[in-house]
Amino acid sequence: MKKDFRITYPLWNMAFILILAVMAVGFTSSFVNVTKTDSSLSIEMQAVEGFLLFAALIAYLVLTTIYLIALQAYNRKNPGKKISPFSMRPPEYMEEDEGMTFITRKAVQKVYTFITWTLPLFALIVMLFPIPRLFIVWGILALAFGQNLIYYLEMRRHLKEAAE
């Protein structure tokens, strides 16, 4: 069970989200707007943004490759419960029997509670305050990160208890 790809799946998601957060710096122009009055600094920030975007793209490609290799290895070892990288259904759901369905439901309920509170709150903050585009993107990614973290910690707690 420890090597079950479904348990570590949220960690992969979290790693991808972190890379996207770095990539977002390159895709948004907030820093450039802030430093428009000082042209020399503006050029410097654009270079930093360009570098971050390039580095994040490389990191994303590398992580995707490692992810696909790990997924392929898992599928080879577990032909009965293969995971498709293109599945619409989150592969981290563990529902092979009623006990596993029970803990998955508990973890999903925690995530739902988190999203129910944070999403409208975040929308309200964005509406009330003039937040730069980069911070809005980071906020959305932080919610996605939090959702994966909550799910992972809850599942790990139950499975750790079962292992004792």
Binding site: M1, G99, I103, L159, E161, A162
Partner: peptide
């Protein structure tokens, strides 16, 4: 069922 489900039952968690 899985080993984990037996463990959850024994612990009274499920």
């Amino acid at each position: 069922v899985t080993r984990q489900t037996i463990a959850f039952i024994e612990k009274g968690e499920f």
